[in-house]
Design a protein around this nucleic acid. Structure first.
Lengths: 130, 130
DNA sequence: TCCATAATTCTATTATTATAGAAATATGGA
DNA sequence: TCCATATTTCTATAATAATAGAATTATGGA
């Protein structure tokens, strides 16, 4: 992922309404939700909601699929995954930088399958990453 | 982390110059960089750079420390960590959603220490998360 | 066919953010 | 002290994004 593309995704999520929409869809799982339900839950007028849904769709963070009169929106997990991989790549020069995220543990583990990674203190992370 | 705060962080990163600045600092590690070096590397005029540095500082993604005539900026990894934890919490209803990120593996592993998490296919993730 | 409804697109307005020159501030060295 | 330089703050302007009413489109049901 390139910087420009990542910035686009981040900007799309960098708005309270859109972030809320996205998280509703992330939590809803693959079944997703219809705009009606989202709008009701978040209290957004239909045109405003539509504006944000199309923004999120354009950048590839969600996707909408027509179903008779409705449009079922769902999160595109793969896009989110790539974004987080981008953010955490080449980080921190060997410091333990992302204990809550826990991605680092797994990366360390894959590099050295015998290591114990089940504790709370993560190994150094992310150095020779993709 | 609350949605509003997360949106602020994402918006701060959702600008190509700021994202580039942040990533330079992430890669620079705890030693950080001075604005001069950043500006030169990214080709940004000093006032523009300063504007973005103060934005990133205000939201807590970086921090600046005066050192004689210079100001040493460095990434605040903890903030990034919390942001990613927020983004990946309560996701995907048991689907395997973030294989590249790899956070899911570790979360699964912590839940069930005997599991093998070293392969490329992550376990279901993130369900009863913080 | 006609209506109710889901959702979008059109539109104008408002609000916010980015840009970078000019001026200001602060520090160390000559 | 005086100057060069790092960085910021001030300022005006330009660019972009958000909001939501009104109009439009599409679908299923009466």
């Amino acid at each position: 992922m390139e910087t420009l593309n990542a910035a686009e995704l981040l900007a799309a999520l960098g708005h309270e309404s859109r972030l809320s929409i996205f998280r509703l869809l992330v939590e809803a799982g693959p079944e997703g939700l219809f705009p009606g339900a989202i709008g009701e839950k978040l209290g957004l007028p239909a045109p405003t909601l539509s504006f944000h849904l199309s923004h999120l769709t354009r950048v590839g963070l969600i996707r909408g699929q027509k179903e008779s009169r409705f449009i079922r929106y769902s999160a595109e997990y793969a896009t989110m995954d790539e974004l987080i991989a981008f953010l955490t790549s080449n980080c921190c020069q060997g410091e333990a930088c992302l204990p809550k995220t826990a991605a680092c543990d797994t990366i360390a583990k894959r590099r050295n399958p015998g290591a114990d990674v089940s504790g709370d203190t993560p190994a150094a992370c992310c150095k020779p990453n993709e």
